[in-house]
Amino acid sequence: MKITPSQSYWKSNLRILMALLAVWFLASFGFGILWSDALDEIQIGGFKLGFWFAQQGSIYIFVLLIFIYIILMNRLDKKYQEEVSQDLDKK
C-alpha cells in the first residue's frame, strides 16, 4: 500500500519529537541531575557547570527547543499541504 501524505507527515512528526525530547532529557535530567556533580568539577566564571545547567542552562535550552520545534513543524506543515494538493491534482 502506498504511504499517504498524512502517514508520512505523522512519521516525520514523531522523528522530530524524538530528537527534540532527547535533547530535553539530556539538558535537564542528564546535565542538571544525573551528571550534575561530575560537571560541577568544571567551573566557568563563578558558576560550577552542573549547578549552572540545573538553575539556568536547562531553561535556556527548553526555550530554544520549542522554537526549533515551531520552525521544523511549520516547514513540515507546508510540505504536507503541497503533497496533499498534488495528490488531489492526480485524481
Binding site: 535537564s28 527548553f62 520549542i66
Partner: peptide, 12 residues
C-alpha cells in the same frame, strides 16, 4: 533546582 527545571521543562 527541582522547581526551576520542573516548572519550565513541562512546557516543552
Amino acid at each position: 533546582s527541582v522547581y526551576l527545571m520542573g516548572w519550565t521543562g513541562g512546557y516543552v
